[in-house]
């Protein structure tokens, strides 16, 4: 694999209290590629993706062993501020979670917390981000309406636009289509393929077809272990592990 490595998990163990949720996971996220994590519910894939932007810190009584690297930077080093990591590694969540503010404010928020005050710049950035997330046409005449009035699919694209405005380097998608209809799902998948030109993308999904459609690399998780990781094509056509094969062919999960 001659691609540039963007993020790296090295010997990662993760515990909720005494329960071990991840066991010695090693995985590379390649630059400008889509990396998918698949596996049955409770296998640890969501826990794993939340390590990449230090979101698991918000949960009490958790322990992380091993390292997560972002361009060779140990993101959990005491010298590194989680806030700075999150400015470089954005996240789109399972359920659309727009702020109870206007559509415009939802996008401009990320710019404002990063200290940008130039109004013209913010307006331009909001427009660009909404265009990139392919929702501009639907909202351009109602930027001052509450974001909560949008449909679920629109809200999720708004959340993607919100993430894009911050100009991160990596975007983590945590089951972004879990609560969406097939048409909205198709739009988001198209968008992900478009976004990988500029971003390194990690996506957790329940849906194996989705992983096959959008990703370049796939990791299969089972009970906290990364069973197999490789090029999506290989994982789906010639899995090396019997458990991967059983999951992909739908024998369990």
């Amino acid at each position: 694999m001659d691609n540039k490595i963007k993020m790296q998990a090295k010997n990662v163990d993760f515990f909720y209290g005494k329960n071990q949720a991840l066991k010695n996971v090693n995985l590379n996220v390649y630059a400008n590629k889509v990396t998918a994590m698949i596996g049955p519910s409770g296998c640890g894939k969501s826990t794993f993706i939340r390590l990449f932007n230090r979101m698991n810190e918000l949960v009490a009584h958790t322990t992380l062993k091993g390292k997560i690297l972002l361009d060779d930077l140990d993101i959990n080093s005491p010298l590194v501020d989680a806030v700075d990591i999150r400015k470089r590694v954005g996240m789109v969540f399972q359920k659309p979670n727009p702020f109870p503010k206007t559509i415009f404010e939802n996008i401009s928020y990320g710019l404002k917390v990063n200290g940008i005050k130039d109004k013209a710049f913010i307006e331009q950035k909001v427009e660009d981000s909404l265009k990139k997330a392919v929702i501009w046409a639907e909202v351009k005449d109602r930027l001052n309406d509450s974001a909560l009035k949008l449909s679920g699919g629109q809200q999720q694209r708004l959340c993607i636009a919100r993430c894009l405005a911050v100009e991160t380097e990596v975007i983590l998608f945590d089951e972004p289509c879990a609560s969406l209809d097939p048409i909205s799902t198709a739009k988001i998948e198209e968008l992900i393929l478009e976004l990988k030109k500029d971003y390194s993308i990690v996506i957790v999904t329940h849906n194996m077809q989705q992983a096959a459609r959008v990703s370049d690399y796939t990791g299969f998780f089972l009970l906290g272990e990364l069973i197999e990781f490789g090029k999506t094509q290989d994982i789906f056509t010639a899995p090396k592990d019997k458990k991967t094969e059983a999951y992909i062919t739908g024998r369990f999960g």
């Binding site: 400015k87 954005g90 702020f99 917390v113 993430c163 911050v166």
Partner: peptide
């Protein structure tokens, strides 16, 4: 909790999240 996480994930500080969201 989801909108607190959204705010933090955009690089807002904890206090910024409390104050603005």
């Amino acid at each position: 909790q989801s909108i607190r996480e959204a705010s933090l994930s955009l690089g807002a500080t904890k206090w910024g999240t409390i104050k603005n969201i």
